[in-house]
Amino acid sequence: MTKPVADTSAVVVMGVSGSGKTTVAELLARRLGWQEAEADDFHPAANVAKMHDGIPLTDADRLPWLESLRNWISAAPGSVIITCSALKRSYRDLLQTADADVRFLHLDGDPEVIRRRMTARQDHFMPPALLDSQLDTLERLQPDEPGLVVDIDQAPERIVDQAVRELGLRS
């Protein structure tokens, strides 16, 4: 059974921690005039505590979080931008069950660039020590998935320009 065409769109800005999801999502939402949300804000306290302690999340930890993201997308009154690591295909498949035209913007790049970014930021619960576990878990966006892979080694504004153009996004 195919999913009916939705009246709203959702762009999931995905990638490992430190890839620039928040920066790109904020710029993209501002450009399009769409509502924007940070998936980290949807994590239950237990997940945040595990990550803060350097303990990788399991699929069981992530499932209720992903379901709440999907439900938020479905309930949003218009098109949305949301950040989400969306590391596995199964996570993206779940997000695509939202009542919206869900597409992915995969921010990808050199792990050492990402590690430097993570080390430089302050007051974030995700320690750089978990980057390797995220990279090990990451299943890159596949050609049959709706979305775009972009290299993070460019200005965020250029990433947004490319996403708007190649994903056919409109305000």
Rank of each mutant, 00 (worst) to 15 (best):
Tyr91Ser: 00
Arg92Ala: 00
Leu138Ile: 09
Gly109Met: 09
Arg117Cys: 09
Gln122Ile: 07
Gly147Glu: 12
Gln122Phe: 04
Lys50Glu: 10
Asp93Glu: 14
Pro128Trp: 13
Leu63Gln: 02
Arg116Pro: 05
Thr119Phe: 01
Phe125Gly: 03
Ser133Gly: 03
Ser68Met: 04
Met51Cys: 01
Ala75Thr: 07
Leu94Thr: 15
Val48Ser: 03
Ala76Thr: 14
Leu94Ile: 13
Leu95Asn: 12
Leu95Met: 13
Asp108Tyr: 10
Lys88Phe: 04
Glu139Ile: 02
Gln134Ala: 00
Gly78Ile: 07
Leu57Lys: 10
Leu130Lys: 06
His52Leu: 09
Ser85Glu: 08
Leu135Tyr: 13
Val80Asp: 04
Glu139Lys: 00
Ala60Ser: 06
Arg62Asn: 02
Arg70His: 05
Lys88Asp: 03
Asp99Tyr: 07
Ser68Glu: 07
His106Ser: 15
Ala98Trp: 07
Leu63Arg: 00
Arg89Ile: 08
Thr137Lys: 01
Trp72Thr: 10
Pro64Val: 04
Val48Trp: 11
His106Glu: 12
Ala60Trp: 04
Asp144His: 12
Arg103Asp: 07
Ser79Met: 03
Ile73Asp: 11
Leu57Cys: 07
Leu87His: 07
Leu141Tyr: 10
Ala49His: 04
Val113Asp: 07
Val48Met: 12
Asp132Pro: 10
Glu139Tyr: 01
Pro77Phe: 09
Ile55Gly: 01
Ile82Pro: 06
Ser68Asp: 08
Pro77Lys: 13
Thr97Val: 05
Phe104Arg: 10
Asp53Lys: 01
Gln134Glu: 15
Pro64Thr: 05
Ala86Ser: 13
Asp99His: 14
Tyr91Arg: 00
Ala98Cys: 08
Asp123Cys: 01
Val150Gly: 01
Ile73Leu: 04
Leu94Glu: 05
Trp65Gly: 00
Arg121Cys: 00
Thr119Gln: 15
Val102Thr: 13
Thr83Lys: 00
Ala60Gly: 10
Arg103Ile: 09
Asp53Met: 01
Phe125Cys: 03
Asn71Ala: 15
Ala129Val: 14
Pro127Asn: 08
Arg117Leu: 12
Leu66Gln: 03
Ile152Glu: 08
Ser79Thr: 08
Ile114Thr: 14
Ala76Gln: 14
Ile82Cys: 15
Arg103Gln: 15
Ser85Arg: 06
Cys84Ser: 14
Leu94Met: 09
Gln122Ala: 03
Met126Ser: 02
Arg92Leu: 01
Ala120Val: 02
Gln96Cys: 15
Ala75Asn: 13
Asp93Met: 03
Pro111Asp: 11
Thr137Tyr: 13
Leu66Cys: 02
Val48Ile: 15
Leu63Gly: 00
Ile82Arg: 03
Ile73Met: 02
Arg121Glu: 02
Asp53Glu: 15
Leu105Pro: 14
Gly147Lys: 05
Ser79Pro: 13
Asp144Gly: 00
Thr58Ala: 01
Ser90Phe: 01
Pro56Gln: 09
Asp59Tyr: 12
Gln142Ser: 09
Leu87Met: 10
Glu112Phe: 06
Gln142Cys: 02
Leu141His: 11
Asp61Leu: 14
Thr137Leu: 09
Met126Thr: 11
Thr83Ala: 00
His106Gln: 15
Met118Asn: 11
Arg89Lys: 14
Asp132His: 04
Leu138Ser: 02
Arg103Asn: 03
Gly54Asp: 05
Ala60Cys: 01
Leu148His: 04
Ile81Trp: 09
Asp53Ala: 15
Glu145Pro: 11
Arg92Gln: 07
